[in-house]
């Protein structure tokens, strides 16, 4: 594995840990979009269907896949649980979490049927997962822009998550040069995903990085 790939996976892992740690330690779900989190469950369940084929790639690969499936379900369970423990926060979330996900679901489903490596159930599901992942953050970004204020941990979560797919792009270029193969579907969706995050990245740079730089003596 090349450094971009490792750093990409680590930032993906970090983003989820930041999110869970955030919910657990502050005991609040404020600013988190349940729609985005449900979309991620769908992303991982449709992408890692190969787990059932038992032709496992590597120990690392399998452990990571199982982690992403289980942690995404766990986050949704945590958010659902807040329905009773944080009734007000949960209601506020539903009121501000108003992005129309049916359009993304329909669009990515069509994309999966049209653009895939092979017209089989597993490959269409994989393609759907890749296209869906590229836009799954939209409800979260929409919610963030609507509320105006943002909890810094939520912002760090979104940043780490966006960084992961961005780092996969140099990884794909690296693999093209060293192995001579490139997955054009993953590359195209990865570029779209990075573009979706680009505005957020710019704001993150302006607010978080520049502010911390100014705070230095």
């Amino acid at each position: 594995m090349n450094p971009f790939r490792i750093l990409g996976d680590l930032s993906h892992l970090a983003s989820i840990l930041v999110l869970i740690f955030n919910i657990k330690s502050t005991n609040t779900i404020e600013g988190i979009s349940i729609k985005t989190q449900v979309l991620y469950v769908l992303v991982f369940l449709t992408r890692y269907l190969d787990l059932f084929s038992f032709r496992l790639v590597s120990f690392y690969n399998t452990i990571m896949k199982l982690f992403f499936i289980s942690s995404s379900i766990y986050v949704v369970v945590l958010l659902q649980r807040s329905k009773t423990t944080q009734a007000v926060a949960y209601k506020t979330m539903l009121l501000t979490d108003t992005f129309k996900v049916q359009y993304i679901l329909l669009g990515t489903l069509i994309a999966a049927f049209v653009i895939n490596h092979k017209f089989t159930f597993v490959e269409i599901a994989w393609s759907f997962s890749v296209w869906l992942e590229s836009v799954a953050i939209l409800p979260q970004l929409f919610m963030l822009s609507k509320s105006g204020k943002s909890k810094s941990l939520t912002v760090h979560y979104i940043f780490a998550l966006g960084l992961y797919r961005t780092l996969y792009i140099p990884n794909w270029i690296w693999r093209y040069h060293t192995e001579g193969v490139i997955d054009k579907i993953a590359l195209a969706a990865g570029i779209i995903q990075t573009l979706v995050y680009s505005d957020f990245f710019y704001l993150y740079y302006k607010k978080v990085i520049k502010r911390s730089a100014l705070n230095l003596p």
Binding site: V57, N61, M64, Y168, R175, I182, D183
Partner: peptide, 10 residues
């Protein structure tokens, strides 16, 4: 072909 699904990625 050069364009193919890379199965060892996440």
């Amino acid at each position: 072909s050069k364009n193919k699904r890379v199965h060892d990625e996440l």
